[in-house]
Design a protein around this nucleic acid. Structure first.
Length: 133
DNA sequence: GCCCTGACGTGAA
DNA sequence: ATTCACGCCAGGG
């Protein structure tokens, strides 16, 4: 028998599994998901799978581009949906972009382990945090 | 079987 | 920060 051919479905399952593993309140890039699914360079495949996957089977909204940008065109229905979903989990999107340093999945752990805080910053004009928060 | 497109990524200009 | 180009793989015409 030629069972040698593993159906591509296996890869889909791995991808969906990786996405499902993203903790609430966190986000991950397509590339990260692919890597975690054991598919190093298949970021595009992740997108394709999500497109093929019906909503509800996986937290698709927690997946963004490597820049933290939403993959959908700004203003599109899916875009708004994603922003809404993320906001519901405490992930705020600014200008179609999410702060990976704050909500990045593994990224966050990496920072915690290596050294978080690249403090030196300029005082963001007008923006300040009166409370030491 | 070739060509184009795409929920991507990275590097350079 | 923005734009362009190239690489990558899978589907669809």
């Amino acid at each position: 028998m030629k069972s040698v051919e593993a159906k591509p479905k296996a890869e889909h399952a791995a991808i969906l599994r990786a996405i499902a593993a993203i903790p609430p309140g966190c986000v991950a890039s397509y590339g990260e998901i692919a890597a975690r699914a054991g598919l190093p360079k298949r970021a595009r495949l992740v997108g394709r799978v999500l497109g093929e996957t019906p909503a509800g089977v996986a937290p698709w909204y927690r997946v963004l581009r490597s820049d933290g940008r939403i993959a959908f065109p700004p203003g599109s229905r899916e875009f708004r949906e994603q922003v809404r979903r993320l906001a519901a989990e405490g992930v705020l999107v600014r200008n179609g972009r999410v702060d990976l340093a704050a909500h990045g999945w593994e990224r966050n752990l990496d920072d915690l382990l290596w050294g978080p805080p690249p403090p030196a910053k300029k005082a963001a004009r007008g923006k300040r945090r009166p409370t030491g928060d």
